[in-house]
């Protein structure tokens, strides 16, 4: 365990379309890393390059310091799910896993183990063509787990899953990361990853926009700000600044306070005898932060590759300036 994915300066064009434009990041073990970006941001292409399926025009992608194609039994190093529809409809789930197992020198016992892990034992001998999309996702994940690899990559694994499946998938991804594995999960919906990913790689237009822990992005997005409506803005500002908060007038009778939780704000104002009509903690929304980031990806694309923290600062400033 403890194998990381290192992607450095990947560039790739499909005709006139730039799919990857200097994609660079590292995925570390022991946590679930979300790979987020709008459709067409280059997530799937990056994964295909890591797996040696697509050749980049420039740059390298290494798994544990080696090219994927140089791995002798690749499925015991990297497990992947790119497309749940890939298995042939006429072949049973078990037989799909059997040929994969044989390609790695594994036996039917391991196939039965992974079928059990993903809860498909009962349907193992049914043809994959009769599977629901959610079952196919489970089959794809079983295939990824065959070689018990330290690195796992899933492309849009939540697609087509029912709510129960999504809950299962979240727990499952968490468990893999808790084992110490490197888990990279792509999605174009931040909401799917909000409760799962410890870390986020946010991409747009073929390059990395942000590389941040989920907690930091949340904090930056919301900034622990509190919105206050008061009939005496100057008195309130003075009292709160004395208590160590930073206060910004946001027009009329409202102030935005940073640095103090809402409860403290109420306590300080009450102690100072300042009247107020409303105190509200601003809702922290990963979705909004993500949307802000990706919407700005055009602007960032013109600059030299920003470091993750620089991008985050940009994002924070932008958010605060609004």
């Amino acid at each position: 365990m403890g194998t990381s994915i290192e992607v450095d300066g990947l560039r790739k064009r499909f005709g006139s379309t730039t799919a990857l434009d200097g994609m660079t990041f590292t995925v570390s073990p022991g946590r679930v890393t979300g790979f987020v970006g709008p459709n067409g941001a280059g997530k799937s292409t990056t994964m295909r390059v890591i797996l040696g399926l697509d050749a980049p025009d420039a740059g390298t992608a290494l798994v544990g310091g080696r090219r994927y194609a140089a791995l002798p039994r690749p499925l015991s190093h990297v497990g992947s799910l790119l497309d749940a529809a890939a298995p042939q409809p006429g072949r049973s789930a078990r037989n799909h896993l059997m040929w994969l197992a044989h390609s790695q020198g594994l036996t039917g016992r391991r196939v039965d183990e992974v079928l059990d892990l993903v809860g498909l034992t009962g349907a193992a001998r049914r043809k994959a063509g009769g599977y629901s999309l959610g079952m196919r996702q489970r089959l794809g994940i079983a295939a990824a787990l065959l070689g018990d690899p330290p690195v796992l990559m899933f492309d849009e694994p939540f697609n087509g899953m029912d709510p129960e499946g999504i809950v299962w998938m979240r727990g499952f991804l968490r468990g893999l990361a808790d084992d110490g594995r490197t888990v990279l999960v792509s999605s174009h919906l931040m909401g799917e990853l909000q409760d799962t990913a410890d870390h986020l790689l946010i991409v747009g237009r073929g390059r990395l926009i942000a590389d941040t822990s989920t907690a930091a992005l949340l904090a930056a997005a919301a900034g622990n700000r509190v919105r206050l409506r008061t009939s005496a803005p100057p008195a309130a500002a003075a009292a709160l600044e004395r208590a160590g908060a930073s206060v910004m007038p946001t027009g009329g009778e409202t102030l935005t306070i940073a640095g103090l939780p809402a409860g403290e704000v109420v306590a300080v104002l009450s102690a100072a005898g300042v009247p107020f009509a409303e105190v509200a903690a601003e809702q922290a929304s990963l979705e909004r932060a993500y949307l802000d980031l990706t919407r700005g990806s055009v602007e960032y694309a013109a600059r030299p590759a920003p470091t993750a923290s620089a991008a985050l600062e940009d994002a924070t400033r932008k958010d605060l300036a609004r």
């Binding site: 399926l53 994927y68 194609a69 497309d83 529809a85 890939a86 298995p87 994969l100 790695q104």
Partner: peptide, 14 residues
């Protein structure tokens, strides 16, 4: 037909 080749070549890169 459905991208099976990517499963094949991920398992057998040669």
């Amino acid at each position: 037909r459905r991208g099976l080749v990517r499963v094949t070549l991920a398992a057998m890169p040669g």
